[in-house]
Computed example of a mutant assay.
Amino acid sequence: MRENHCELKKDTRMLPEEAVATAIDVLQTEADSILALRPRIDKNFLDAVQIIYDSKGKTVVTGMGKSGLIGKKIAATLASTGTPAFFVHPAEAGHGDLGMITRDDVIIAISNSGETDEIIQLIPFFKRFGVSLISLVGNINSTLARAAMVVIDISVEKEACPLGIVPTSSTTAAAAMGDAIAVVLIKKRGFKQDDFACLHPDGSLGRRLLIRVKDVMVTGDALPFVRPDTKLMDAVIEISSKRLGLALVTGRDKRLLGIVTDGDLRRGLLAWGQQLYSKDAASIMTANPRTISEEELAAKALSIMEKHSITSLIVPEASNTGDTGDTVKGIIHIHDILKKGIV
């Protein structure tokens, strides 16, 4: 039977302290590789950023193998932060995917050696159509570097693996340089949290930045109202029927005087016992309840509730919140916020 020389050999002799030391050495080597990039944030880097910024098309990232995986991450980061971008696999490009690239696009080609065959074969196409080519390479004298409009040096002193050949430090350096490009573009474009949220509507962060109090609050007939002279037993019925844990105490003009909460009822029972139910809402209500504008983010409402250990906030009609005497437009409850996935 033919021996399989690629079969992995098991070795259980590594001591825990040796494993820890090896892992720390990997982190240190990769950290050093990133710090070594600092002097390379130079004119070439700035030119690359400006080319991408000025482009009327998209930023197309390409790379083979591990560099391709880093390229996908760079493209995703750019696309999610205001720079339209996508990844093209260099091996697929020559089989029709070049049709996705236009003259207005910018190419970022990643190759540690700068001699990756699948990318080198694309250079004539880039030249023919005048596509701007930026190369991230570990060899600035390589074929890819010579063909590029702008070259960014991402070379590393050594890989972090003991063999010195597995892409580790080099891929870390490429990813870090990609992040540097993306973050500079974020600032250059004036990209804000709201912009990020618009591109991430289904994520928890997007929901935190997009959903406002008015999108979640309870309004209309679902609101529990009682008068100041309403007996507590009737107030309890109103609280239970509307299931918000409170009742709004309003005068004849519908202006808010206070609220009666589950907590007020519990404290009232401790203070007055059964006599509680002979009292009216005005005698037990909490005056000056906490309020929030309907235009505030629901995430801010949640933060206020957590800070003050409460479950609801009043949403007044008036733009000037915080003053008892406003008419009530709605109530925002913590359960409705959490149902939206805002955490």
Rank of each mutant, 00 (worst) to 15 (best):
H5L: 14
H5Y: 11
C6R: 14
C6W: 05
L8S: 10
K9I: 07
T12K: 13
A19I: 15
A23W: 14
L27W: 08
A31N: 14
A31E: 06
A36W: 03
I41V: 13
D47E: 06
I51Y: 05
G57K: 10
T59V: 15
K66Q: 10
S67F: 01
G71C: 03
T81E: 00
T81K: 10
T81P: 00
F87H: 08
R103G: 10
D104Y: 11
S113W: 03
P124D: 02
V131K: 03
S132A: 15
S142F: 02
L144E: 06
A160G: 10
T171Y: 02
A180V: 10
V184A: 11
K188C: 08
D194F: 08
A197H: 12
L199H: 12
L199I: 11
L199C: 12
H200R: 09
D202H: 05
S204T: 15
L205Y: 07
R208P: 04
R208S: 11
I211C: 01
G220T: 12
D221K: 15
A222H: 12
V226R: 02
I237K: 08
S240Q: 09
G245F: 07
A247N: 02
T250E: 09
R255P: 05
V260D: 03
G263F: 06
A271E: 14
Q275S: 12
S278C: 07
A282H: 14
P289D: 07
R290I: 12
E295A: 09
E296K: 11
T311D: 13
E317C: 11
S319F: 14
D323L: 14
D326F: 12
T327N: 05
K329D: 13
K329V: 01
K340E: 14
